[in-house]
């Protein structure tokens, strides 16, 4: 290893374990803290299962900050003018606001809907090539290298979470490769999760918090001490179409 610590690396470390660096005295504490964010060369494991809890009561009326946050982070949607030729019904939507109105009581509210990162994902079951896949840590992704664009996963997803790309794209963002003829969906900001581990904040959650609504909690469903697990233990959470038994990574409160 080099003798000096060069600044870029300091910055890199600062992003993940810098806070720990300030307070630690004993090396052991470090090891724990470092283990939080997975080292870049280590594979993800099934020790974690990443998920989100969304409190729809906190979801602001008419607010779509999370949607815009996702667009900015991942480069899709109108604010990036990413698919200029496609008709509105053809454009990708990784996350959308769904407005609900109870037909009996008239009670109306809204919630953000995206890939639910199912534990038993139908999209993965039906994909002929294995392009639809679930990582060991529960994040469901499309491996666009081997996606043939058959769209069977879109037929199978109960949440309409996936989009097909209908035209050539250019200048995609580095964190979110995407292109013509393949299918895509919410990645749970996997690039952030790989970098920050349990401290990760997906772009939607970040944008929501910045707006002051704080409706999202991201975290490890396998860790009973994580914020998300504690909140679920305390108040419970609903899965959309729980009757399908897919064991979703995204849970809601208030629906």
């Amino acid at each position: 290893m080099s003798e000096h610590v060069d600044t870029s690396r300091r910055r890199f470390i600062g992003g993940t374990a810098g806070a720990a660096a300030g307070m630690s005295i004993a090396p052991g504490v470090f090891l724990n803290q470092v283990a939080q964010a997975k080292p870049a060369d280590q594979p993800v494991t099934s020790e974690n299962r990443w998920g989100m809890l969304i409190d729809t009561n906190k979801c602001g009326d008419g607010c779509d900050a999370c949607v815009r946050g996702c667009m900015e982070e991942n480069g899709w949607g109108d604010i990036n003018d990413s698919e200029p030729h496609s008709a509105p019904e053809q454009k990708a939507q990784w996350i959308r606001i769904v407005e609900l109105r109870d037909t009996r009581t008239g009670y109306a509210h809204q919630l953000p809907l995206m890939c639910q990162h199912c534990k038993h994902p139908p999209c993965v079951d039906v994909c002929p090539t294995g392009a639809s896949m679930k990582r060991a840590d529960g994040i469901v992704l499309v491996d666009k290298h081997i996606c043939i664009g058959c769209r069977y996963c879109m037929m199978a997803c109960p949440y309409k979470a996936r989009s097909f790309i209908h035209e050539d794209l250019q200048d995609q963002l580095v964190v979110a490769p995407r292109g013509k003829g393949t299918v895509e969906s919410c990645t749970l900001c996997v690039h952030r999760v790989d970098r920050d581990g349990a401290d990760a904040v997906p772009a939607c959650a970040e944008a929501c918090a910045a707006e002051g609504h704080d409706a999202f909690v991201f975290g490890d469903l396998n860790d009973p001490n994580s914020e998300i697990s504690r909140q679920l233990a305390l108040h419970g959470g609903t899965e959309i179409r729980a009757d399908l038994g897919l064991d979703l990574g995204v849970r809601y409160r208030g629906i």
Binding site: T129, I148, R151
Partner: peptide
């Protein structure tokens, strides 16, 4: 009609045996 018909070879070499399509 595939999104990527040029990847026919992928369809022939990568199999997901859970998939009824495969």
């Amino acid at each position: 009609d595939l999104g990527r018909p040029d990847r026919l070879i992928v369809a022939m070499t990568y199999y997901n045996f859970k998939s009824i399509f495969a």
